[in-house]
């Protein structure tokens, strides 16, 4: 066994979280200011609305080395733009189903609705998701080999 392979065993998953500006990002803020712990390897990308999340963003995140991608938005009915998350919900449902159809572990993708008041939910969701991804291990199926240095 090579040294770098041994080193590789200490793997920490990379999780990308798309959070809408109005609810979930504020929820993440609240989790922080309430001193609730959530894994440091969750990288938040703030988007104006969950509806802004293009399926390409999700695939791109995986391609560039994410092991799990989660999208968070306002609860259905509470979207700042009224209906954005309803469209996003359909899109993500179909996209996740397609990923599953292509044989990609379906547990690597997730959608959660987190309001600005739900700091505790945000932390709990992220902890739980990180645990799932830890268990699944490294994402190999969606990785772009050319991106590896």
């Amino acid at each position: 066994m090579q040294v770098n392979e041994i080193e590789k065993k200490e793997y920490t998953p990379l999780i990308v979280a798309f959070c809408c500006n109005w609810c979930s990002y504020a929820g993440a803020d609240l989790a922080g200011s309430s001193r609730l712990n959530y894994p440091a390897n969750v990288k938040i990308i703030r988007v104006p609305c969950s509806c802004r999340v293009n399926p390409l963003f999700i695939l791109r995140a995986f391609q560039r080395g994410a092991d799990g991608v989660i999208m968070c938005g306002c609860h259905p009915g509470d979207c700042h733009y009224s209906t954005g998350n309803y469209y996003a919900r359909r899109r993500m449902t179909l996209l996740f189903s397609m990923l599953d159809y292509l044989g990609i572990e379906r547990a690597r993708t997730r959608v959660e609705w987190v309001s600005a008041a739900e700091g505790a939910k945000f932390a709990a969701v992220m902890n739980e998701f990180a645990e799932t991804i830890n268990r699944l291990g490294e994402n190999r199926k969606l990785r772009d080999l050319r991106c590896e240095k």
Partner: peptide
């Protein structure tokens, strides 16, 4: 009333 994406899981 649309289903949630978790239906896939």
């Amino acid at each position: 009333e649309d289903c949630e994406p978790s239906i896939v899981m």
